[in-house]
């Protein structure tokens, strides 16, 4: 089997004095979709933030390799340029900066990192149109300020559009389904499915099984109290939905 895109070993992280991740282990291989499920407060979003390099979290122990490189040593922008993408649970608004300008700056930073020439205006516009069609984004988005005045669903779709534009190695979707109605959820899921490829991996963080009906995972993990306590095939998600998280957490507490 190929080398994993992401290898997490015994990852511990805390905010202030509170330890939130308490020894996470995970291997994600190219082409795979991993779902991370778990009840509120189990550390799902913390895992996403730590991988993206958010400063508020302190890694106290463990190792993360991204394509074989030490991820934890990199600045957030370096991680992004290496191909790590986070679709935010709460995308921010950037007033005065159009989506087009923002994405062009981002894409050309990525290209520079890879030793590629920046795209010219025409190439960039063509790419935007093509990718917008892929994720069913209205081209009027391009000239609007990033997320400014967007509805919750539009913000999430804009995240997937950015994902389509930046073509990462690993995309982490942090509760992308939260706040979406079923139609918006389908559009987002279709976008993600269109972007699945043998070179790319996804880490789909979600509280509910619902999203996994549309983005079908290869592996499902249950994160609880900062550890992955159960791993299984896609059916695990259905089982969790039917039986509730107590089903695994209770056995876990016995095991601990």
């Amino acid at each position: 089997m190929a080398e994993p895109i992401l290898r997490i070993r015994n990852l511990h992280a805390r905010v202030g004095e509170t330890e939130i991740l308490r020894g996470v282990n995970l291997d994600v291989y190219p082409g795979q979709v991993h779902a991370i499920m778990g009840p509120n407060g189990s550390g799902k979003s913390t895992l996403a933030a730590v991988l993206a390099g958010r400063e508020d979290y302190e890694v106290t122990e463990g190792e993360v390799l991204f394509d074989g490189k030490n991820l934890l040593e990199m600045d957030p922008e370096e991680r992004a340029r290496e191909g790590l993408f986070l679709a935010f649970q709460y995308p921010v608004e950037i007033p005065g900066v159009s989506t087009a300008t923002f994405l062009k700056t981002a894409l050309n930073e990525l290209r520079k990192h890879r030793g590629q020439e920046p795209l010219d205006a025409m190439e960039f516009m063509n790419l935007m149109r093509e990718r917008a069609a892929l994720v069913k984004i209205d081209p009027t988005f391009f000239s609007r300020s990033v997320n400014e005045g967007f509805s919750g669903g539009e913000k999430k779709r804009n995240e997937i559009f950015q994902l389509a534009m930046l073509e990462p190695r690993l995309a982490i979707l942090d509760e992308t389904d939260s706040g979406l109605d079923i139609d918006a959820l389908k559009i987002v899921a279709d976008g993600v499915n269109a972007l699945r490829s043998p070179e790319r991996a996804f880490l789909v963080i979600t509280h509910y099984q619902r999203l996994l009906n549309y983005i079908v995972p290869d592996v499902v993990h249950v994160l609880y109290r900062g550890r992955i306590i159960k791993t299984g095939p896609k059916e695990l998600a259905l089982e969790l939905e039917a039986k509730g998280y107590e089903w695994v957490t209770e056995t876990d507490e016995v095991a601990l």
Binding site: V92, F102, T105, A106, E109
Partner: peptide
């Protein structure tokens, strides 16, 4: 929050500030 969002898209902080200022 805004700066981290930009960083996560590969844009360093100085560039992000310049981008926002020029837009503004």
């Amino acid at each position: 929050d805004i700066l981290f969002y930009c960083n996560q898209r590969g844009i360093d902080t100085e560039t992000a500030v310049a981008l926002i200022i020029n837009g503004y």
